[in-house]
Design a protein around this nucleic acid. Structure first.
Lengths: 349, 349
DNA sequence: AATAGCACTCTCGCCTTGAGAGTGCTAATC
DNA sequence: GATTAGCACTCTCAAGGCGAGAGTGCTATT
């Protein structure tokens, strides 16, 4: 693979860049004219033939221009992965937006999704950060009506889950508050396992709620990601490869059925570290569902404590030059946010 | 308009039904053969010409079959609006699903969106119910880190809003709990106006939180709908009128930009009563944004107390026969759910 | 009033065709 | 030996032509 000459490299990158822009097969003549190369088209043709033999380019049909192959894209991406940075002006704009919206976690998530989609012109997805090992922080029980109560659980890291329960019999708000207060005292900072090891409570209500909390914590640990924020679905439809609405439908369905998406994220994040990007190109590694699409993924957060995933989805011909730096930058921002939360907690102790 | 003969009516309905099924212009011959009419195609042609003159049908081009005009669809809808009921088996399936998911409000909303989208094969949208005149019910203040606190406010009707605040200086959880307890005692059941009329609190923290609560209540009243749950976006892409991805993109963009959607819902619900359906066909009434699409909308809830909106969006050629009864039925179900919540609250007093 | 018949119109799919773009190869050139 | 000019060849794509088919409106007839 590294038998590529310098000239072949430049040529390959040029071809891919051009194809990403134009969505057209690129020919030797066009290449010479457009990029002021000091070579004749014949030479280019020879080189292109060589690159085609190596499997980096493809011809849609005899005597058409060349189109990058999956392999070609991968090479392209590997070349630019580690250098590309988002222009500073854009960085500023983005971080400014985040600064303005120093709202709650939900605000961050939607903002991140929106920024990713706009910058990369692809479909974005962001999962909320969730604690690797959830620690109990606080619970509130609020009577909403007769036997129904609202339970709000806060975990370390700022994760909040709310849930409506129906009790066997009505309970006064006062008693609920007492129960919550007792549990808050005795469970603070504990993990699921710690809680499981506690002796059974004498008060039946306390014990019931405790079980529910630990179930919720376990669930939060398992589900991995929970809600997925997305944006930019219609960007897909602007791409010529999705002019056929069948194609578009198939791809967008991925996003509508969140379960597939969660599965995908879960499996890919297994072998990825925070800070590192993962770029899935085409059906790479058994992801036939991706079809002719690509996915730029990154994890963010604080290793071992809390993390989430974010990424951009688009056609294989997506603008990696925009997507990759943007994903990396936004991942960095979100990591900082998570970090701040954690730091705040430590400090509070 | 009501100068239509019986025969013309049947014919019109037949034509529209056929067109909705096939997405093709329907001709006189096809009509005779397909529906075993005791008439010749020539007679049908005459009637069709008459209907075309009245503006209920259109010819895409000379000597093609007829296609319903917007006016035609409107007539069609007005005919079936008040009779159509969802088949009982389907009703059972749906209510069963709702029964199983007797989760929280969010569960209901997503379920409603999913049911609507599946049944009608269109794009669904559902807004959470929100109180016409929000009444304060409960507040919880939870310290999450240093100066940041999580405020969970519960309104009458079960509406919950959570929000992260940053205080000027760190406050202990204990003090927060006391503040919450005091506010809960003195604000219970009050409306925004009531709260505004209260004397200023001596405790600065109490007063700050009180202001935030009243701001939140006002906001909740204004924003009208808040989050909009949608489902079935890809159903649009299956329709032949959206084979051109431009068209699809334009229509789906409506759904991505929630603001337009909210605006639309807000304006249409102004003059609609709970229980009554509204069907917007094409650009009817200055809704050019709808283009060649239709919208079946309904409000649900309890008049004067809490209400939300739900609806189905699709091409003008959408299956009203499915959409209308489904929207009506689901609106009924959600109304019942809201009603139960309210009833539960009254009973609790 | 309903119908049969007929001439007419318009689209749509199919085919052909020519232009254009691009290739690969060979022979000439630096 | 690498590069280039030249050329014959291939393939797509858009445009035009053509015929079939579906459907209409009108008129004369039942």
């Amino acid at each position: 693979m590294s038998e590529l000459t310098e000239r072949q490299k430049t040529l390959l990158l040029l071809i891919i860049r051009d194809h990403i822009e134009t969505a057209q097969p690129v020919g030797s003549k066009r290449l010479v004219e457009h990029y002021h190369l000091d070579l004749s088209s014949a030479t280019i043709r020879n080189e292109m033939a060589a690159l085609t033999d190596m499997g980096l380019l493809r011809q849609p049909y005899t005597s058409a221009g060349r189109v990058p192959s999956e392999e070609g894209y991968r090479y392209f991406v590997s070349q630019m992965m580690y250098q590309a940075e988002l222009p500073e002006t854009i960085q500023k704009t983005i971080s400014h937006q985040f600064y303005q919206t120093r709202a709650d976690q939900e605000g961050w998530m939607t903002l991140a999704a929106s920024v990713l989609a706009n910058q990369s012109q692809g479909v974005s997805m962001v999962t909320a950060p969730h604690a690797t090992q959830a620690r109990f922080k606080h619970v509130e029980l609020i009577s909403t009506q007769g036997r129904q109560i609202l339970m709000v659980t806060v975990f370390g890291g700022g994760e909040v889950s709310q849930q409506i329960l129906t009790l066997a019999e009505p309970v006064t708000q006062e008693r609920l508050s007492q129960t919550a207060a007792r549990l808050n005292r005795s469970l603070a900072g504990l993990t699921v396992d710690d809680i499981a090891a506690l002796p059974i409570r004498t008060d039946a209500l306390d014990q019931d709620i405790l079980m529910l909390i630990s179930a919720e914590m376990r669930r939060s640990g398992e589900r991995g990601s929970g809600q997925i924020y997305t944006d930019g679905e219609t960007n897909l439809l602007a791409e010529p490869e999705f002019a056929e609405s069948d194609e578009a439908r198939r791809a967008l369905k991925l996003f509508e059925e969140r379960s597939t998406l969660q599965d995908l994220i879960a499996r890919t994040t297994l072998n990825s570290t925070i800070g590192g990007l993962q770029v899935l190109i085409g059906g790479e590694g058994g992801w036939e569902q991706l079809g002719q699409c690509s996915l730029v993924l990154a994890r963010y957060g604080v290793p071992g404590i809390a993390s989430g995933t974010l990424g951009v989805f688009g056609p294989m011909r997506m603008s990696y030059a925009k997507a990759i730096p943007t994903v990396r930058y936004v991942a960095g921002l979100l990591s900082d946010l998570v970090n701040d939360t954690i730091a705040g907690e430590r400090e509070a102790k």
